[in-house]
Computed example of a mutant assay.
Amino acid sequence: MKKILIFLFISTLAVELSYAQDALRAEGVVLNSSTSTALEGVNIVNLNQVKGTTTNENGEFKITAKVNDTLHFSYLGFKSIKVRVTNDWLKYGSSNIELTELALALEEVVVSQLKLTGFLEVDIKQVPAINSNYRYSISGLEGTGYEASQKSGLTKVIGSIFNPADFLHRMFGKKPNELKKLKKMKEDDEIRNLLAHKFDREMLTILLQVDRVDLDEIVSQCNYSKGFIQKANDLQILDAINECYEEYKLLSRGRTRKI
Rank of each mutant, 00 (worst) to 15 (best):
F7I: 15
L13G: 09
L13P: 09
V15I: 13
E16Q: 11
D22F: 10
D22L: 15
L24A: 12
R25L: 09
A26V: 11
T35M: 04
T37Y: 13
V42D: 04
N43H: 01
N43Q: 10
V45H: 11
G52M: 07
T53K: 00
I63K: 14
N68Q: 08
Y75I: 15
F78I: 02
K79L: 05
V83K: 02
T86D: 08
W89R: 09
L90V: 06
K91T: 11
S94V: 03
E101N: 07
E108D: 05
Q113L: 14
L114Y: 06
K115V: 14
V122N: 08
D123K: 09
I124T: 12
I130Q: 13
N133F: 11
I138N: 00
S139F: 12
G143D: 01
T144I: 03
T144F: 03
Q150E: 13
S152M: 11
S152R: 15
K156G: 13
V157F: 04
G159S: 07
N163Q: 12
F167M: 02
M171N: 01
F172N: 05
K175R: 13
E178G: 07
K180V: 11
K181I: 09
L182A: 04
K183F: 04
K186P: 07
D189I: 12
R201A: 03
L204G: 03
T205V: 14
L207N: 15
L207A: 12
D211H: 06
R212P: 07
R212A: 03
V213I: 09
L215C: 00
I218S: 08
V219Y: 03
N223E: 10
S225H: 01
F228G: 03
F228W: 02
Q230G: 07
L238C: 02
L238D: 06
A240F: 03
E247T: 06
L251A: 07
S252C: 03
R255W: 06
I259Q: 11
